[in-house]
């Protein structure tokens, strides 16, 4: 059983939902990332999504675009993100780490080389925004051999006919993009998300996380009422952007607030 699966199962057994924060690796500089990951876990994160900087982040809004640019100014790339994960693993063997980014850095490294290096670094899952199931067969097979979960996005536009292909290849969890748009866009509508999740669950047996547009504890609490996991990205990256002073503490306390709101959802 993968670390993601066992984490999800343990949470489900307690009737709780996973809290999945996203930060861009190397933002604002490579030295801070591992410390921030620990601070997020301490605040109550169950899984960490670590953004791999890319020169052309087509699916991201301005906040995460700028995070990528700050990291790239330090020339942070996939191999550095793997090194950061390995560093994180030295003192945390429990929290799953998912690398989130675009296909080309993985392509450039080669699927096989990447899979081996990722296992060695302690990576648990990979989410490549621009690798839909149609193009993912080879990558999925190689990652599966190495025990790494390939995580797919689902969108409001995804028709039932595509869900079967996703169900066949996806592992770990699936990530439902709550709105049409880029990361950091407007607030999501919890009622329409709830309706869509009912439909998705007819086809998808994996846990379903919801992200895009979750900016505060209250929204997180309401989403936790309908989803298996809550993903928060741009809101955290905005904290990073606000400056390095007390950053770990700020992220920690924000996550604590979200965690406690989510845990009252079930009470």
């Amino acid at each position: 059983m993968s670390r993601i699966e066992s984490t999800m199962q343990a949470l489900a057994a307690q009737g709780r939902q996973a809290l999945i924060p996203f930060i861009t690796a190397g933002d604002p500089n490579p030295g801070v990332t591992v410390g921030l990951m620990h601070a997020l876990v301490d605040g109550g994160a169950d899984i960490i999504e670590l953004g791999v900087p890319f020169s052309d982040p087509m699916a991201d809004g301005p906040v995460i675009q700028r995070a990528s640019e700050r990291a790239l100014a330090h020339r942070v790339s996939l191999r550095h993100v793997l090194a950061m994960t390995a560093e994180f693993r030295k003192t945390d063997s429990k929290t799953p780490v998912v690398l989130m980014g675009y296909a080309n850095p993985v392509e450039a490294m080669g699927y096989e080389t990447f899979a081996k290096a990722a296992v060695e670094a302690g990576v648990d899952g990979v989410l490549t925004v621009d690798l839909p199931p149609e193009e993912a067969e080879e990558c999925a097979a190689i990652l599966k051999t190495h025990g790494i979960d390939l995580i797919f996005l689902l969108a409001p536009t995804t028709p039932p006919s595509r869900l079967q292909a996703v169900q066949r290849l996806a592992r770990g969890y699936v990530y439902y993009v709550s709105l049409k748009g880029v990361t950091g866009a407007a607030h999501l509508d919890v009622d329409s998300v709830a309706a869509k999740l009912l439909e998705l669950r007819k086809y998808i047996s994996l846990p379903i996380g919801v992200g895009f547009g979750i900016r505060d504890a209250e929204t997180a609490r309401r989403v936790a009422g309908v989803a298996d996991a809550v993903v928060i990205g741009s809101r955290l990256v905005q904290e990073v952007e606000a400056g390095e002073d007390g950053l770990a503490e700020r992220l920690n306390s924000f996550i604590k607030g979200v965690r406690s709101a989510m845990d009252t959802a079930r009470a």
């Binding site: 839909p132 149609e134 797919f152 996005l153 689902l154 536009t157 995804t158 595509r162 993009v177 049409k180």
Partner: peptide, 20 residues
């Protein structure tokens, strides 16, 4: 049929755009 020219081409976009 899936837009491949040998090893090139294809459809590499975010899920939201696939149905479009």
């Amino acid at each position: 049929v899936r837009g491949h020219f040998g090893q090139h081409g294809g459809i590499y976009v975010a899920e939201t755009l696939m149905p479009a």
